[in-house]
């Protein structure tokens, strides 16, 4: 929502953090600076749901796409200070930052559609409420993003699958009838193209490298493979929004992901794993809030500080 400075005068010598806090009129909250503090144009973040699309469905869909990016970002950030080389650390952190940016806009959008209210206990922005004060059962991400990333080879296999899938999704989403989703997708396509290229280059280098790097790359691919099938399953919320011209049918993404794998895996001398998919639990999976125990560990790290100090200030 639009906020004003209320005539407060800033001087050039003021601390930048004062300026940020004052500028957002929200100096109390230490964990965010208000991504939705005013948007403009036809893709304004508080635009109503398009005609024919249920508001709650759209809010849930925004959470699905946001949680995929948020949890993946948190996982990737775990490489910071631990990556094999400084350049790779910067690359993984940059990728995490792009995904975090996508998540923030989508969470803010979900918040404007009412998704944050059941979790709200304080004055924080909706995106912060949704990121820090939901339990794992309220997260709507696919299982792949919450899995432990293992070694660098497994991380790269994970990123190739995630980026190829999300790129195919976001590319189709640029035609969404929801202007915010279309706008987020327009930016995400450019970012994910870099993420996929980065992962593909490393899969090639490791897979077609030494015997050891080849074995570890193949093992990494095998480890993440059981979580791929869920990426192509359509949840009822998605099905309804596909009919409304707002969402993308996940089943339609399989051909694009397969085409990438058919290009990369043979060049990297890797074999497409034959491991069976991890099944859903009673027909329910990550999109329903049914997660593996890995998500609890991710959220514990991500949320503990905000929960311990919900009124913290800079």
């Amino acid at each position: 929502m639009a906020r004003h400075m209320d005539g407060h005068d800033l001087h050039a010598d003021e601390n930048v953090y004062d300026a940020l806090a004052t500028a957002d009129n929200d100096g109390r909250w230490a964990f965010g600076t208000g991504f939705d503090a005013g948007t403009a144009g036809s893709s304004a973040i508080d635009a109503p749901a398009p005609e024919g699309a249920d508001r709650d469905d759209l809010a849930t869909y925004c959470l699905m796409l946001a949680d995929d990016a948020l949890v993946a970002s948190q996982r990737l950030a775990g490489w910071t200070t631990k990556a094999p080389e400084l350049e790779e650390e910067v690359a993984l952190a940059n990728t995490a930052l792009d995904l975090l940016g996508q998540a923030r806009v989508l969470l803010a959008r979900a918040g404007h559609l009412g998704a944050a209210e059941p979790f709200r206990h304080g004055p924080q922005d909706a995106e912060d409420v949704l990121a820090y004060f939901r339990d794992d059962r309220a997260f709507r991400n696919v299982t792949l993003v919450e899995t432990d990333l293992g070694d660098f080879g497994q991380t790269i296999a994970w990123l190739l699958l995630l980026a190829s899938w999300r790129l195919a999704l976001m590319q189709r989403l640029t035609g969404s009838r929801d202007p915010v989703l279309a706008a987020v997708a327009g930016k995400a396509v450019k970012e994910l193209t870099y993420h996929r290229d980065y992962a593909a280059q490393w899969v090639l280098r490791l897979g077609d490298g030494t015997e050891l790097s080849h074995a570890r790359m193949q093992a990494g691919l095998d480890a993440v493979w059981p979580f791929v099938e869920e990426l192509f399953l359509a949840h009822p919320v998605e099905q309804r929004l596909v009919a409304a011209g707002v969402a993308v049918d996940p089943a339609a993404l399989r051909a694009d992901v397969d085409a990438v794998l058919d290009q990369v895996l043979p060049a990297a001398r890797l074999t497409r794993p034959g491991r069976p998919a991890v099944g859903l639990v009673g027909g329910r999976g990550g999109r329903d809030g049914v997660h593996t125990e890995a998500l609890g560990a991710v959220l514990a790290v991500m949320q503990s500080l905000a929960r311990a100090h919900p009124e913290a200030t800079w």
Partner: peptide, 17 residues
């Protein structure tokens, strides 16, 4: 503010990217 404009609002737009 330094240029004398008291009321300022900064909005963000994502489209076109």
């Amino acid at each position: 503010h330094a240029a004398g404009h008291e009321r300022v609002e900064v909005r963000t737009t994502y489209s076109p990217p």
